[in-house]
Design a protein around this nucleic acid. Structure first.
Lengths: 148, 148
DNA sequence: GTATATACTTTGACTATCAAAGCATTCTAA
DNA sequence: TTAGAATGCTTTGATAGTCAAAGTATATAC
């Protein structure tokens, strides 16, 4: 691996580690401090779809349905998510956000918007273009190689 | 939020959700399937420094030393890491990789090399330079804003 | 109408994590 | 020079997140 690749590797590793920690620190100490970062991501996933079953959500989050069941149990207890049964198929559990859930969803969304705005505001147009292209590369590489 | 920002946001959200899962899937099912992704990252951190104390490693991984202690306990049990005492300061524990540890380090490194190769695949040398600079900017922005 | 498949939950076990208390060693300042 | 503070690490007790596998309820297929 050449020098450029090595330094890029170091930056990427660092950035990925840091962004997750920052997100946690930023979100889990504010208005909804009873939510963990995992719970925020579950809320994000439910909120960004009109209707969502357990198995769809588990698949999207890449966790087993058993794991999601206990996660949703806690979110229901905390008042962010509602469980319901599908009319079409009584086996299916349909989960939706409560009013608090919607508020938490918006907070999470704002964090991401802020992050992007501030990140890009410091970059030259050319830098911004190259950054987006590189991230597209990573994404399509993953998509192809790991079928995500 | 403009179009570019929106597309970057979408890619980032997706990437952050997926990248750890992919790395785990890729690394933790191969030759060293008794290693978790967290253990790979610990090995990566130890291996990329000549000598490493517990507290240096914990700080770099952004975990408490208590957490690292149990992590290193397991890696020692599994035969990937050795504990030793510093000669200079008998309080300090110096951790190093065993031969197996070095092998696992190389496997992890290869995964990252592959990733970087594909990320940079269709960038001009000048664009590579720009990307590295852009990511440095992002990193230092985070560092300043969130004191990480 | 029974066998099979699907959707979800429960159970038992493990890893990763933290805060706080504890132990050993080193440093510091009177 | 030595008592108290600081440092480096480990232990302890608690919690979240995770999985595999077994269990339950409903739907589908033959």
């Amino acid at each position: 691996m050449n020098k450029k690749h090595d330094s890029l590797n170091k930056i990427l590793v660092r950035l990925f580690n840091d962004v997750l920690k920052i997100e946690e620190k930023s979100l889990c100490t504010g208005d909804f401090s009873d939510l963990t970062i995992t719970e925020y991501h579950t809320i994000e996933n439910i909120g960004s779809h009109r209707e969502r079953t357990m198995s769809e959500t588990a698949k999207a989050l890449k966790i087993t349905s058993g794991t999601l069941t206990t996660g949703i149990d806690n979110l229901v207890k905390k008042g962010y998510v509602k469980r319901g049964r599908s009319e079409d198929d009584r086996r299916k559990v349909v989960i939706t956000l409560t009013e608090s859930g919607e508020k938490a969803y918006k907070i999470h969304e704002e964090f991401h918007n802020d992050l992007i705005e501030h990140t890009l505001s410091d970059l030259e147009p050319e830098q911004e273009r190259v950054l987006i292209k590189a991230l597209f590369n990573v994404n399509s590489y993953f998509k192809e190689k790991y079928k995500i």
